[in-house]
């Protein structure tokens, strides 16, 4: 499934949070969305998953405007994984994952063996099968995130949106979650804050600053010390890692740069 974001703007009280952004993803691509806090990453994603209606521009899923589709039709095509807290109401892991079937269910439909099977397979895929009857609230951040990815799998959408999926997670979970998503082969757009993870896992990157696009391309094209300096305001050294064959970025404290420079 392909996504086409065409000149999209979204503003609050005349302040542009997302400013004329145009981007696209090809079939099966893993696209990363970078930018400092408050650069409009989450808002842009929200316009993509049809939560915010852009004041200008279009969001097209396989040439189809998401605002011409119902919430249900969008949910059949697109799954979203975001930071989630269920507050005081507790569901079991099994129930949370089963909710992924909602967009495919009509009012009188019951859960079928096939639905349970899908839940089971998805939980196995994220290595959470032994947690099925556990309460969602008692899980750690990384476990919750994996359960939500399982729900996205059960949703059987062909387009995946991830909003900072590795936020506040141990490094082990950061790697395992992106590894998992990467191997799903589903077209994915993910807001990420870790440049090294982005360099390793993304096919292409878009960089946002103050709501506008400032760079786009492969990690090698985008992740240059100059751009990192302009966007994030830090010095860095970018090298090809001998083992991974991907870029690795080392951030340099002001003091060390002053000494060298």
């Amino acid at each position: 499934m392909q996504l086409q974001v065409d000149n999209v703007s979204w503003s609050v009280d005349a302040q542009k949070i997302v400013d004329s952004v145009t981007l696209s993803t090809a079939e099966g691509e893993f696209v990363g969305l970078l930018g400092p806090n408050g650069s409009g990453k989450s808002s842009l994603l929200r316009t993509i998953y049809r939560l915010l209606k852009p004041q200008a521009g279009h969001i097209l899923l396989d040439e189809c405007n998401v605002w011409h589709l119902s919430a249900r039709e969008v949910a059949q095509r697109m799954a979203v994984v975001m930071q989630e807290r269920t507050g005081e109401f507790d569901f079991s892991v099994f129930e949370i994952v089963l909710m992924g079937r909602n967009p495919h269910k009509k009012m009188f439909d019951r859960d079928t063996e096939q639905d349970f099977q899908l839940v089971q397979e998805a939980l196995q895929r994220v290595h959470m099968e032994s947690f099925a009857q556990r309460s969602f609230l008692t899980l750690s951040g990384g476990e919750k995130q994996r359960v939500l990815i399982a729900r996205a799998l059960v949703q059987q959408a062909r387009f995946l949106v991830l909003d900072e999926p590795t936020n506040h997670l141990d490094i082990h979970y950061q790697l395992s979650i992106l590894e998992l998503v990467k191997h799903l082969g589903v077209t994915t757009i993910a807001a990420l804050h870790d440049l090294n993870l982005a360099a390793y896992y993304c096919d292409r990157l878009y960089v946002l600053k103050q709501g506008g696009l400032v760079a786009a391309g492969t990690p090698a094209q985008v992740l240059q010390p100059d751009l990192i300096r302009t966007v994030y305001g830090v010095w860095s050294e970018v090298k090809l890692h001998p083992l991974t064959g991907k870029l690795t970025i080392t951030f340099l404290p002001e003091s060390s740069v002053a000494r060298v420079g």
């Binding site: 939560l51 109401f89 909710m99 909602n102 269910k105």
Partner: peptide
């Protein structure tokens, strides 16, 4: 009761309900 699935999703969160296809 016929809307129970949507009620479940709403209990998790507004955004979650919306991304699971509920016209919130």
């Amino acid at each position: 009761t016929l809307q129970a699935r949507s009620l479940n999703a709403l209990l998790v969160g507004d955004e979650t309900a919306a991304t699971l296809g509920v016209d919130t």
